[in-house]
Amino acid sequence: MTTWTARIALAAILVLLSACGGGGSGAGAGLAGRTFLSTEVTGHTLVAGTRLEVGFPQDGKLTAQAGCNHLFGDVSFGGGRLQVSGIGTTDMGCEQARGEQDTWLVHFLSAGPSFTLTGDELVLTGAAETIRLVDRRAARPDRALQGTRWVVESVLDGSTAGSVPAGAEAYLQFDGERVTGDGGCNRLSGRAVPGPDTVTFSDVRFTLIACADDRNTLDEAVLATLSGVVTVKIDGDRLELRAADGKGLQLRAG
């Protein structure tokens, strides 16, 4: 199956799921506000270097990731099972195996796996596969904004996430009220004043090296984000920077 075929198959599944209904939380109330990372998967072999993530950011909502795109939808609980509906996805281009793993996880969740929550461990059991997960806070505590090398993984524009050009590395490092780093082509530095869940950027300057068009585009996306008051969200080793216009960056601790 090609990458495009995997995308088409995933899109078809999402259309079918969007027609299904949601519901209340009930027995799943203990999951709200928590994110879980896979520790063991039986019945399916994960792509090397990937780890499943399933989250319940608020009552009645579900997020998930299988190594490529971010999935999100509605969830209710009945008879000890997850009932997932209205699944949507970002549209990042990924290698074929990761795209197919996205599709597999959508199939698994849409089939209504049973769930068992014991302390920090969540077990999801389907017809042929079982996923064991542990609360993210126990497995991967939040990294500090300051002193961490944050590598850009995707560029955000509303609900769309675009991938970084192959071979390019853009990163940010925060030190006190300063930010330094690289936009993927040019070096950068400027003022970055941290606040509660925000950073206020000003006087951010880039060097002026000529680069290929795709790296210039990445430079421009990074520079556009590092301006004014930007919302900061840290989840384990991931950082999201989001400007008021919905544009931003997703980064991972290097």
Score class of each variant (00 low, 15 high):
D59N: 07
N186M: 05
E169P: 00
A11T: 06
G28I: 03
L124C: 03
V15Y: 11
R7V: 08
A138Q: 14
V75H: 02
T180C: 11
S227L: 11
W4S: 15
S154M: 13
V232S: 01
R178V: 04
M92W: 11
C185M: 12
A224K: 14
P194W: 14
R238Y: 07
L71G: 01
D175S: 15
A64Y: 00
D142S: 15
L226R: 11
S163M: 15
V41Q: 04
M1K: 04
V106K: 00
T2M: 15
S18E: 08
H70I: 07
L122S: 04
K61Y: 00
D74P: 01
L241F: 12
T89M: 15
T207F: 13
A253W: 08
D182T: 11
L218T: 08
G119H: 04
V134G: 03
T198Y: 04
F108I: 02
H44P: 00
G73V: 02
G86T: 01
L249D: 06
D214Y: 05
A243G: 04
L16H: 04
G236D: 09
R137A: 14
P196K: 13
S18N: 02
D213G: 02
G158I: 15
L46I: 07
R187C: 07
T225C: 15
V84N: 00
V232G: 09
Q173S: 08
E220R: 14
Q83M: 05
S189G: 13
T45F: 00
G254C: 12
T35Y: 09
I209S: 13
T89K: 08
A127R: 02
Q96I: 08
G99I: 03
L251M: 13
I209P: 05
G55E: 05
Y171R: 06
